[in-house]
Simulated scan of single mutants.
Amino acid sequence: MLILSIDTATPSAGVALVDEKGLRYEAVANTGYKHSRTLLDMIDVAFRQTDYVLRDVDAIGVTSGPGSFTGLRIGMASAKGLALAAEKPVIGIPTLDAMAFHIAWVPALICPILNARKGEIYGAFYQGGPGPLKRVSDYLALSPPALAETARTYMDQLDLGTISLVGDGVDEYRSQLHDLLGGAMVCPEEPWLPRASSTGHLAFRRLIQGDIDDVFSLNPIYVRQSEAENRLAKGKGAR
């Protein structure tokens, strides 16, 4: 079985092909939010480089959020369009799940974080180490102090001494988070962004279990409202 996976949740766009033997192809374009101009070309190159065509694909995986609202819409619309055109199933993989998958083996509280702007972070908490990766929280949008407080609660509950942070939220809030978490915080020198290959591996696992999404009802996970929705809500409240 072959998965075409798409990631457009952040400034870095990615495309991958994954099957039962593992990763067959992956390309990343960290060129900013130009996904509407680059994504379909990246998919075309992936097929030409591997001699696959769309009809060879068994399902299409796509990062479903949180992340850039516009980026998520581009990825979701592209995945749905390809799925409908080729009559293939679509599988949405939460962005933070795909990021945590990078370091699922680490025996720590794992917390992928994305810069949500406005002084907030998108994040979720996972129990890593031996055994399957387990998400222990909802997908959240919260301030760095709130994230640190929540992290300490889960570390106490799970009896874990360290928290491993990955994502561009680390780059944005590294100093503040270090002040809040101290020696319990472990993170790479470079931020780890979502990878289409991780989305593909997780989508493959769901496909072999028969766990697919409805192409018409699958929607992005935004976690919080967009600016347009906030302005609309304020306008209604002022009437």
Rank of each mutant, 00 (worst) to 15 (best):
M1D: 02
S5P: 05
I6Q: 04
T8D: 11
T10C: 08
V18E: 06
V18H: 06
D19K: 01
D19L: 03
R24M: 14
Y25G: 09
V28G: 01
A29K: 14
N30Q: 10
T31P: 00
T31Y: 14
T31D: 15
K34P: 00
H35F: 07
H35A: 06
T38K: 09
T38F: 02
L40M: 15
D41L: 13
M42R: 10
V45D: 12
F47W: 08
F47R: 08
T50E: 07
Y52R: 10
V53M: 11
L54M: 14
R55G: 10
R55I: 11
D56N: 14
D56H: 14
V57N: 05
A59H: 11
G61E: 03
V62E: 08
T63K: 01
S64L: 15
P66H: 01
G67R: 05
G67L: 07
F69C: 10
F69A: 09
T70Q: 06
T70V: 04
R73E: 09
R73Q: 11
I74G: 08
I74F: 03
M76R: 06
M76K: 05
S78N: 11
S78V: 15
A79K: 07
L82T: 02
A83Q: 02
L84G: 00
K88R: 15
K88M: 10
V90P: 06
I91A: 00
I91V: 08
G92Q: 04
I93L: 07
P94H: 00
P94E: 00
L96V: 04
A98Y: 03
M99A: 03
A100M: 02
F101E: 15
A104G: 03
A104I: 02
W105F: 15
V106K: 15
P107H: 04
P107Q: 04
A108G: 08
C111F: 02
A116W: 09
G119M: 05
Y122S: 11
A124P: 08
A124K: 00
Q127G: 07
L133G: 10
K134Y: 01
R135F: 04
D138Q: 15
A141I: 03
P144W: 02
A146R: 14
L147D: 09
E149V: 12
A151Q: 11
A151W: 08
T153D: 14
Y154R: 09
D156G: 11
I163Q: 11
L165W: 11
V166Q: 11
V166W: 12
V166A: 12
G167F: 11
D168G: 10
G169R: 03
R174H: 13
S175I: 12
L180V: 08
L181S: 13
V186D: 13
C187H: 15
E189Q: 14
R195E: 13
S197F: 04
S197D: 12
L202S: 04
L202D: 04
R205C: 12
R206Y: 03
R206H: 12
Q209R: 15
Q209L: 15
G210N: 01
I212D: 06
S217D: 13
N219I: 11
R224F: 01
L232V: 07
L232A: 12
G235M: 05
G235I: 00
K236C: 01
K236N: 07
K236E: 13
A238M: 05
